[in-house]
Write a protein that binds this DNA or RNA. Structure first.
Length: 817
DNA sequence: GCGGATCAC
DNA sequence: TATGGTGATCCGC
C-alpha cells in the first residue's frame, strides 16, 4: 500500500517537475537561468529514475513475497506436521552439537561515532588521532590475546580468547597492569569526567563508559577484580576484563573507542558488539539459556546476513524476532531452500562458528565506475578498456588469472545487467580481458541499436581463478613461458626498479576522462594519435581495424586449443611439433648446449606486437648466453646465492635472497624444462610483467639471471621437494625426480591445451581438497565462514571476507615453502 | 556456466 | 543530499 502511494506520488512529482521545466522553457521566463532550471530538472529526473528503480525493485520483492504466500496457502496441515518432525529431528542433532566452550570476541571500532564526536567537537580536530586499522592493532595489541585473530576490514576483528583466558588465570598481576597515558585523554573525556554521572571515580579512564560495567564483576574473585590507583589500572582475569583491557589499550593507542561482544561463537559475538555500541561491550554467558535469552526478542534484522529483503519476506510470515524464527521452523523448511532454512535454524538456535577460519582464496576481482551518462559507443569502449587496464594491474599484482570475464552495466534508469563470458585460457592482461569484455559490450550496444546504450556505470570482473596450486605451475608452464617470449615481456625490466616501473606504467595514458578531453582536442586539430583509443576502438568494432585486431591476436593465440607453433625459449627457434615430449626434449637439449644455435628470428606470428621486434634480437642473444652461463654454473655446482649477493635494491629481491637458504632444493645438475619454467616463474613473481606500450623499457639480464639461477642451486643432503606441488619426493633418483617435476609442470600446459577442468594435478595438492567445494551441512554449521555468506534467503554468520589481499603476498614464500 | 539478486562492509 | 565500490554467494535456469 505504501509503495503504491509512493509510486503515485513519485510519478506525480516527476510529472510536475517536468511540466514545470517545459513550461519554463516555453514561457521563456526571463528572470531565471534556463540552464539552471534544466539542471534542476535533470537532477530531479535523475533522482526519480533512481527512485523509480527502487520502487521497481521493491515491487519485485513484493512479487516474491506473493509467490511465497501462494505457496504457503497450498501447504496442508499434514505436510506441516511432517516437516515439523523432520526439522525437530535436526534440531536435536544441532543441540547435541552445540559448542559453548569457546570464547569469541568481536571488536568493532566506533569509527562512526568518533567521527560524529569530532564533528560535534571541533576542538578535537586539532588533536592528532592515531587512526589505526585492525591489522595494525594486529600486530600491536590483539595478537597478544589471539595470535590468529581475524581482522575484518579496517574496523572489525574477531578473536578467539579461549586459550588466553586459560593462561591468564595463572598470570601475575603485573601482566595485567596498565598505565594511563594521561596525555591521550581527550578534552571531551575530561569534560565527561566532570559532568558524567556515569563516571567511575575509581578509574581514571579516558572513556568513562569503558568502566561503566554493563555486566557485574561478580564472576571475578575479589583479588582478580580490577583495581586502579592513580594512573594505574589492573584488569581481572574474566572474559569481560580481558575485553575491557583490550578496549582500554586500543583507546590508549588510537584515542578511538571500540565496542565489543563476547559470546561462544562468532555470530553471537558480532551481535553482542552491536548491543552496547558505542564504547560498550556485552557478553553472552556460555550457557544455552543465556544464548536463547539473548535471541528471544532480538529482531532478525540484527542477524548478520539477514538484510532488508529477507527481513521483509520473513515479516510477511509474521516473523520478526529470532524466537519467532524458531517457532516457524517447520513452515520455513517448506518455503525456503535447504540452505536457507538450515541457516534460519542455526540463527534461531544461536549456533555459529566457534573457530576463526582463515579466509579462503579470492574468487573474483573487479573494478567498476559510476559516472554521468555515457552514451556513445566510442566512449564506452574506451572506458571499458580503461577498466580492463586497471583490473589487469590489480590482477597481476596478485598474480591472478581468471577464465571468466563479466561486464557489468547500469543504465541511466539504474537497471543493472551483467554479461559474462568464460574463455578457455585464463586471462590477466589488459588486452586479454578487454578482448572478452569488448565483445560483451558490443553485444549490449547492438541489442539496443539503433538507440544508444545509455549507461551510468560500467564494471569489469574476472573470476574463475586457478587454484593456488594450479597458479603455481601455470606461472611456470611452458605456455606462460612462451607467452612471455611472445609478448617479450620477460626481461623487459629495469634493474632495481621493479616497483617504480610498475607504478610508472600504471596510468601512462591518463584516465578515460583525460583521454576524452585530449581526444576532443586532438580531433579538433585533426590528428590521429594512438592515444585516442576510443575512436580507434569504435572503428575497430565496425571495421575490424587495428587495436581490436591486435588484442584479438594475442587472445586468439592463447585461446586456441591447438597452438601450431611453439618457439623454444632457449634458442627461440620455431618448433614444428606441438608434441610436448618432443618440445621438452628439444628444450632440454638446447639447455644442455647440444642444440644451441645462432639466434633465430621469431615466428612471423609474433610480429603482431611491433614493439617486440625493436629489442628482441638482443634479447635472444643474451638469453641464450644466459642460458649457457646458467647451464655452466649448474654443472659447476656454483652457489651464487651464497657467494654473490644480489645488487638489486628491489625489496622483492631482498626477500627472495632471504628465502633461498630455507627453501627445499632440488639438486641442480639436470637443467631441463622445469628449471627454465621455474626460473620464469621467479621472474614473474619478482617482477610481475605488464604489457605496455612503453618503448623505453630496458631489459636487464645479469641481475636476473643471478637471482633466477640461484634459485636452482643445489645443496648437499637436501631433500628433494617438488617445487611445483611442494610434496616431498621419496626418490633419490634425480631422473625420476625430474620426471615428477616435469609432469607437475606439464600439467599446466596440458590443461591449457586441453582445458580439462578436473585437472589431475589436484591429486598433488594436499591443500586443494579443503579449499573449495560444496557446503555440507556440517561445514556450514561448524564453519560459517565457508558457508553461505547470505542468501536470497540464506543468511549466514560468515566471518570471512575482507582482508583477502594478504593471500597473494605469500606467493613467493609459498613457492619456497 | 549465466544472470539476477541479496548482503556485508 | 543523492544514491558507491568490491567481493561473495545463492537461486533458478
Amino acid at each position: 500500500m505504501d509503495d503504491m502511494k509512493k509510486a503515485g506520488n513519485s510519478s506525480c512529482n516527476d510529472g510536475v517537475l517536468l511540466r514545470m521545466g517545459l513550461n519554463d522553457n516555453k514561457a521563456g521566463m526571463q528572470g531565471l537561468d534556463k540552464e539552471k532550471i534544466n539542471k534542476i530538472i535533470m537532477e530531479a529526473t535523475k533522482g526519480s529514475r533512481f527512485y523509480e528503480n527502487e520502487l521497481k525493485k521493491d515491487q519485485q520483492v513484493n512479487e516474491r513475497i506473493e509467490k511465497m504466500m501462494r505457496l504457503k496457502e497450498k501447504i496442508t496441515t499434514q505436510q506441516l506436521l511432517k516437516a515439523q518432525l523432520q526439522v525437530d529431528k535436526l534440531v536435536i542433532e544441532l543441540e547435541q552439537s552445540r559448542n559453548l566452550s569457546s570464547t569469541i570476541v568481536h571488536i568493532d571500532m566506533d569509527a562512526f561515532y568518533a567521527a560524529v564526536e569530532m564533528r560535534d567537537n571541533p576542538e578535537l580536530k586539532e588533536k592528532p588521532i592515531a587512526v589505526g586499522s585492525m591489522s595494525m592493532l594486529v600486530r600491536e595489541i590483539l595478537t597478544e590475546y589471539d595470535p590468529n585473530f581475524m581482522p575484518m576490514g579496517l574496523d572489525e576483528a574477531y578473536l578467539n580468547i579461549t586459550e588466553h583466558l586459560e593462561e591468564r588465570l595463572n598470570w601475575p598481576e603485573d601482566k595485567r597492569r596498565f598505565f594511563f597515558n594521561t596525555e591521550s585523554i581527550t578534552e571531551k573525556n575530561k569534560d565527561d569526567r566532570k559532568t558524567s554521572a556515569k563516571f567511575n571515580e575509581d578509574a581514571c579512564s579516558p572513556s568513562p563508559v569503558l568502566f561503566e560495567d554493563s555486566t557485574p564483576l561478580m564472576d571475578d574473585a575479589p583479588e582478580q577484580k580490577r583495581q586502579s590507583v592513580g594512573n594505574l589500572v589492573v584488569f581481572g582475569t574474566s572474559a569481560e576484563e580481558v575485553v575491557k583491557e583490550i578496549r582500554f589499550r586500543i583507546e590508549q593507542k588510537t584515542q578511538l573507542t571500540a565496542s565489543a561482544g563476547i559470546a561462544p561463537n562468532t555470530m553471537l559475538a558480532k551481535m553482542c558488539s552491536d548491543r552496547n555500541k558505542p564504547n560498550g561491550q556485552y557478553r553472552i554467558a556460555p550457557e544455552r539459556q543465556a544464548v536463547l535469552g539473548f535471541l528471544k526478542d532480538l529482531p532478525i534484522r540484527k542477524v548478520p546476513g539477514i538484510g532488508k529483503v529477507t527481513e521483509k519476506m520473513l515479516k510477511a510470515l509474521g516473523i520478526v524476532t529470532c524466537s519467532e524464527l524458531y517457532q516457524q521452523r517447520a513452515l520455513l523448511s517448506l518455503l525456503f531452500s535447504e540452505a536457507s532454512w538450515h541457516n534460519f535454524l542455526d540463527i534461531s538456535l544461536g549456533l555459529g562458528s566457534t573457530r576463526l577460519d582463515k579466509d579462503g582464496e579470492r574468487k573474483s576481482m573487479s573494478t567498476e565506475r559510476t559516472f554521468s551518462e555515457i552514451n556513445t559507443a566510442e566512449d564506452q569502449y574506451s572506458l571499458c578498456q580503461e577498466l580492463c587496464r586497471d583490473l589487469a594491474q590489480q590482477l597481476q599484482k596478485e598474480g591472478l588469472k581468471g577464465k571468466t570475464v563479466t561486464l557489468k552495466l547500469k543504465n541511466v534508469n539504474f537497471e543493472v545487467k551483467t554479461r559474462a563470458s568464460t574463455v578457455l585460457s585464463s586471462v590477466s592482461t589488459e588486452e586479454e580481458i578487454f578482448a572478452v569484455a569488448k565483445d560483451l559490450l558490443g553485444t549490449e550496444i547492438d541489442s539496443v541499436a539503433p538507440h544508444p546504450l545509455r549507461i551510468r556505470l560500467m564494471g569489469v570482473r574476472v573470476s574463475g581463478f586457478l587454484s593456488e596450486e594450479e597458479k603455481k605451475y601455470q606461472q611456470k608452464s611452458i605456455m606462460s613461458f612462451l607467452k612471455s617470449g611472445e609478448e617479450s615481456s620477460f626481461l623487459r625490466l629495469q634493474p632495481g626498479k621493479c616497483n617504480q616501473t610498475q607504478k610508472s606504467e600504471a596510468s601512462p595514458r591518463g584516465s578515460f576522462f583525460d583521454k576524452k578531453r585530449a581526444a576532443r582536442q586532438l580531433k579538433s586539430e585533426n590528428l590521429a594519435p594512438n592515444e585516442t583509443v576510443g575512436k580507434q576502438l569504435f572503428d575497430d568494432r565496425k571495421s575490424s581495424a587495428n587495436l581490436v585486431e591486435k588484442t584479438k591476436k594475442v587472445t586468439d593465440f592463447q585461446n586456441s586449443n591447438v597452438c601450431k607453433i611453439f618457439t623454444c625459449p632457449v634458442c627461440f627457434e620455431e618448433q614444428s611439433s606441438n608434441n610436448l615430449e618432443e618440445l621438452n626434449r628439444h628444450i632440454d637439449e638446447c639447455l644442455n648446449g647440444t642444440l644451441v644455435k645462432d639466434p633465430v628470428k621469431l615466428s612471423k606470428d609474433h610480429n603482431a606486437r611491433e614493439n617486440t621486434l625493436n629489442f628482441l634480437p638482443q634479447c635472444e642473444n643474451e638469453n641464450v648466453d644466459e642460458c649457457r652461463k646458467n647451464k655452466a654454473n649448474q654443472l659447476a655446482g656454483a652457489d651464487q646465492s651464497a657467494s654473490t649477493p644480489d645488487h638489486s635494491t628491489s625489496n622483492n629481491t631482498e626477500k627472495f635472497t632471504q628465502i633461498i637458504p630455507d627453501k627445499p632444493h632440488r639438486e641442480r645438475q639436470p637443467s631441463n624444462l622445469s628449471d627454465i619454467a621455474r626460473n620464469m616463474c621467479m621472474k614473474q613473481c619478482l617482477f610481475p610483467k605488464r604489457m605496455s606500450q612503453d618503448h623505453e623499457d630496458h631489459f636487464e639480464k645479469t641481475e636476473h639471471r643471478k637471482e633466477t639461477s640461484s634459485s636452482s642451486e643445489a645443496k648437499d643432503d637436501s631433500v628433494l621437494v617438488c617445487p611445483v606441488c611442494n610434496s616431498e619426493q621419496k626418490t633419490t633418483s634425480l631422473e625420476s625426480f625430474n620426471r615428477h617435476v616435469d609432469v607437475c609442470l606439464n600439467k599446466g600446459l596440458i590443461q591449457e591445451l586441453t582445458e580439462k577442468k578436473d585437472f589431475p594435478a589436484k591429486t598433488y595438492n594436499t591443500e586443494s581438497s579443503h579449499r573449495v567445494g560444496g557446503l555440507s551441512r556440517g561445514q556450514q554449521c561448524t564453519n560459517p565462514s565457508q558457508g553461505t555468506k547470505r542468501s536470497g534467503l540464506t543468511t549466514s554468520q560468515s566471518i570471512s571476507k575482507k582482508a583477502k589481499s594478504s593471500n597473494s603476498k605469500h606467493t613467493i614464500e609459498m613457492f619456497f615453502k
